[in-house]
Design a protein around this nucleic acid. Structure first.
Lengths: 250, 250
DNA sequence: ACAAAAGTGTTGAGAGTACACCCATGC
DNA sequence: GCATGGGTGTACTCTCAACACTTTTGT
């Protein structure tokens, strides 16, 4: 075709809940522009590659993360957002359960240096461990509400992602994506308290969630610490659900 | 940059309410691919052009519509959606008040043929009248829920737009965008009844809307037909509002 | 036995829903 | 004066918010 074409990238804002707060995964750029600045992971879309596939590929290349919850967020195309020239990015939002990479997660916000890549498949159980890709000098979790100055317009992209996450909490069940397949009600409540930055009454919270009928009691419990074990539940449907009538939280 | 670049377009799904139902504005394509098929208006993004600006420019070029409510909807980039090759589109959603083009609107869903363009400014009062652009053989309103077979993946884009409009009705005041600056409560109620395809109780609807405190009574009335005139209201804030607590409709 | 977190019910206030009649105007 | 759509109030139900104690486990 005879038209001008801007460059096209897919970026992925990855949120998780660690150390009792919402955190975002950033990479340190290893090459210009913005070499040395922290940035949202992402990169150029390849020929005949669907947008979501590009986002997942770039995410895995730069961070090692795969099989995460992912949805398209918003597209940003203002001129001047990339000093190399007109570049449009299709930003995506990813939510992950921190238990999936607790190998690193035990340390508070560690810097992860580039690992060797292309040396065969990762060992079982480690395929979701974080590791910085070739383009990235390092990889780190940051508090989502106090990010460092980011490359490009990524501070704005992050702000849009936070806003979207917050809004979706009220009318969907996205909050569940921060948990594993099995979870307890106190865990779920903690997720919502952190995301909303507001305490929830235990009895009201339980009643609301359970009355929605979206949870399946597993009949088992999880022992944790020297106190009464909590009952385990699982989500009835895969993925998240729209809640048109009663809200999950208020 | 050394990377492959897909083509990038901006498309605009324009909804209005006419003849008591939700309608969508489509253009008949005047050139291949899909020559003669109906399609969502849109076209290629130009160098250093912001996405929303491209959407507005293409909308005006192809339909003559300007100064409409417009928001970004979703980006579509599946390979194969355009037979010319890898093309990504950033779809936008526009809502318009049908009173703005009642010159044509009086006739039910007329086909509008290309007018002369580039012949100076339009006369006052006609700048929003519909007129097909050069690329388009014709321009027409279609029932949004029964569209003809469309070019590209536009049937899917339309479906996504309908879904988004429907969802936003419940937690924002987007529905007001189908009305002019001044409107009556029965008019507003009719908009919601059409969009939801469901009758609303007059007294409950009024109480809900008025108790939100987002309307300003104008103290005037609008005479229409041989019955009691309805009071006029205006929206207190410009644009639409998020409704976190009480919903507008249920 | 004590510390720690899990689990459980009731009450009052306010919102949502259902429902029927009078009012202002044009013809 | 009659047809047409605009405008109003009340009673009931149900959801939401506030609130304190018992249970189960580890040490």
């Amino acid at each position: 075709m005879e038209y001008f074409r801007p460059a096209l990238t897919c970026d992925v804002i990855v949120f998780t809940i660690r150390d009792g707060r919402l955190q975002v995964l950033l990479v340190r750029r290893g090459r210009p522009p913005f070499r040395g600045r922290w940035a949202i992971p992402g990169g150029f879309v390849e020929k005949d590659e669907p947008l979501e596939a590009a986002a997942r590929r770039e995410l895995e290349e730069e961070t090692g993360l795969r099989d995460v919850y992912l949805e398209q967020l918003y597209s940003f195309g203002d001129p001047g957002r990339d000093p190399r020239g007109h570049t449009v990015t299709v930003a995506h939002l990813a939510l992950v359960n921190p238990a999936r990479f607790e190998g690193e997660g035990a340390r508070p916000s560690p810097v992860i240096r580039p690992g060797k890549r292309g040396t065969g498949n990762p060992e079982p159980g480690t395929e979701n461990l974080l590791r910085a890709g070739d383009d990235a000098a390092a990889l780190r979790w940051f508090p989502a509400h106090r990010p460092p100055p980011l490359a490009f317009d990524h501070n704005r992209v992050l702000a849009v992602a936070l806003e979207r996450l917050r809004n979706k909490l009220f009318y969907t069940t996205v909050g569940f994506e921060f948990l594993g397949r099995e979870f307890t009600l106190p865990e779920l409540q903690r997720v919502y308290e952190i995301l909303l930055n507001r305490r929830q009454d235990k009895r009201n919270f339980r009643r609301r969630i359970l009355s929605l009928g979206i949870l399946k009691p597993l009949g088992r419990t999880r022992r944790e610490g020297r106190h009464r074990p909590a009952r385990l539940y699982a989500f009835r449907k895969p993925g998240w659900t729209f809640l048109r009538e009663r809200a999950l939280v208020t």
